[in-house]
């Protein structure tokens, strides 16, 4: 299944994730494919939060205009917008923990059918830390995971139970993969959409988690 043209590529996954966002939302985007979501929000009035202390994150600066005092949570140089506000880390995580952020779009290593999420630690590999991931998944109203459906060995990343150390329990609402869109529902995952050219049988075959109707 891997390697053929079926399903969505990274940009198509990001574009699909952008459909989750509604006008007026305050949103936190993780690194990797989630970062690309910003390219697909179109005319929607979306304010991006950067958890190191900023609402209203702008694009990368033009060369020569980088400011060492202005970075995102991935430590990359960025810019401000005319709506931007800055605040300290305790205030930033106050708005996250307090449920003020409407949605977080994050990458993941594993998601379980009950919404458990693992995305911060692989035993045996160097552990760098959870950063703000545990706070985000515990606090924001809606957690959308964007990831490949299977890992590089072809194994499902949507599991009955996570095998890796958890970032949060029962926190994921929706999963967008290269094969389609699934919701965490009563008793398992529910297929809500199939990616281009992907059949329901194919997505079921690629998924270890229980699929409910």
């Amino acid at each position: 299944m891997a390697g053929d043209a079926k399903g969505w590529d990274r940009n198509q996954m990001a574009a699909r994730a952008a459909e989750e966002l509604e006008d007026g939302m305050y949103v936190n985007l993780g690194i990797g494919i989630p970062t690309l979501v910003a390219n697909y929000v179109g005319d929607k009035d979306i304010t991006l939060q950067s958890e190191n202390g900023m609402l209203g994150m702008g694009p990368f600066p033009y060369e020569g205009e980088e400011d060492p005092d202005l970075i995102n949570a991935g430590k990359q140089t960025i810019t401000e917008l005319n709506r931007t506000s800055y605040f300290d880390s305790a205030t930033s995580f106050g708005m996250i923990r307090g449920g003020k952020i409407a949605a977080a779009i994050l990458g993941a290593m594993e998601v379980a059918e009950n919404g458990d999420l693992a995305n911060w630690m692989i035993p045996g590999k160097l552990v760098k830390g959870m950063g703000g991931a545990m706070d985000l998944v515990a606090g924001v109203k809606k957690v959308v995971v964007v990831m490949d459906h299977t890992n590089k060995h072809g194994d499902s990343k949507l599991l009955k139970e996570c095998t890796l150390p958890l970032t949060g329990t029962g926190v994921v609402d929706r999963i967008i993969t290269n094969l389609g869109v699934l919701d965490v529902a009563e008793g398992g995952l529910k297929i809500v959409e199939l990616a281009d050219g992907v059949t329901e049988d194919e997505i079921r075959a690629a998924t270890d988690a229980t699929i409910v109707n």
Partner: peptide, 13 residues
């Protein structure tokens, strides 16, 4: 000692 980022900030505050 790993601390979630928001927990670390709030522990200081």
């Amino acid at each position: 000692e790993f601390n979630p980022q928001g927990t670390l900030a709030e522990r200081m505050r």
